[in-house]
Design a protein around this nucleic acid. Structure first.
Lengths: 188, 188
DNA sequence: TGCAACCGCTTGCAATTTGCAATCGGTTGT
DNA sequence: ACAACCGATTGCAAATTGCAAGCGGTTGCA
């Protein structure tokens, strides 16, 4: 985490994102829609330490990947939002997920987002980015959620049901119930 | 750099690549064709420390992203090669470069690779990966270098000359002369 | 045969960063 | 009044990084 020693795009990107936690934080805000300190602290699989989280939030705000504003409904709450540059990390995160899915010992249920993003390709990435813009930048919502359609189509194509179909964004944002992978165990 | 705390593809990828140096090393092997310890040590912009380089090489070999073999021409020389998983990082590196180019203060001449990779898209990535396979895995060479054609076409399209057109791979691998961006200064 | 240059890599050490647990002062809902 | 919760901070130990020097061995050349 120090200053630039090269004008190389990869090196400069690494300077901002090249640590264990920054992209985890962005992932949780982006896909998990976690907007508050304590949500980010407690509800992710990886259990980031609070001082490290505080430091990363500060740094990510400083470099312009996140913005911080006060929560109007709670005087001492802070809300963290993605900025446009962070939203444009979607393709990068999609590639990371795709690579990890192929080459690392991933858990199937935690791979759903990556799989979806990979299947959907750039078209779905753009749709997702549009939704992120509306959530995080207050951009007027897209006329209708392309994401929902792609999601439903993919659901239908890949399996005759199997997991909960709540709202279209649920699987990507992870705000809904955990995914069910099988029928009720009572009917043995 | 420790063990897995989540089966999430992004998190698991970060566990392997989420540090300041690993991707720099891979970048230099991949694009700069630096295959020996001392080449990696001395010839990159970022000046990695030798103990850190030794550690990263060890780790990258351990996780299967690099392979190490003795150099037949020099008894005590080691040659590092990309493995297939590392070669499949090309799309990820392309996205990193593309993002950095847009959102970080890059140097124009160091952005050429990123620009090329971005312009060429997945088709060029595949061509490049095929070339990497032939160099690093000993795969029979592609019938002819698609890369060369795309490069030449892009050269012609984007500018009426302006930089040296040596071999097709030169600009990507960086093994040739540094890129010239203007006419000879003698004709003022 | 001598010798300087080079080979991958290690060592010692200081500085920085991380992980962990406890806790801060303030706010909120009941 | 009070417990639960808010975004952070503190102190401290452990791990990682950066820096400089140097290791034992190999190579090419005079």
């Amino acid at each position: 985490m120090q200053d630039s020693r090269s004008g190389c795009p990869i090196s400069l990107t690494l300077e901002v994102l090249g640590d264990r936690w920054s992209l985890i934080v962005i992932r949780d805000i982006m896909f998990g829609n976690r907007r508050h300190f304590r949500e980010l602290l407690g509800q992710s699989q990886e259990r980031i330490a609070s001082n490290v989280l505080a430091d990363r939030l500060k740094r990510l705000v400083a470099v312009g990947l996140l913005s911080r504003r006060d929560d109007p409904t709670h005087r001492q709450k802070a809300v963290y939002s993605l900025t446009e540059p962070a939203i444009q990390l979607v393709p990068l995160l999609a590639q990371m997920g795709a690579w990890g899915r192929r080459h690392r010992p991933v858990t199937p249920e935690l791979s759903i987002r990556a799989e979806l993003l990979e299947q959907g390709g750039p078209v779905l990435w753009e749709a997702f980015m549009a939704e992120l813009r509306s959530v995080h930048l207050g951009t007027p919502s897209p006329a209708r959620s392309v994401l929902a359609e792609l999601r439903a189509a993919y659901d239908a194509a890949v399996t005759g049901a199997e997991y909960n179909r709540t709202s279209s964004t649920t699987a990507l944002t992870g705000v809904g119930r955990p995914v069910k992978t099988g029928p009720s165990p009572s009917a043995s």
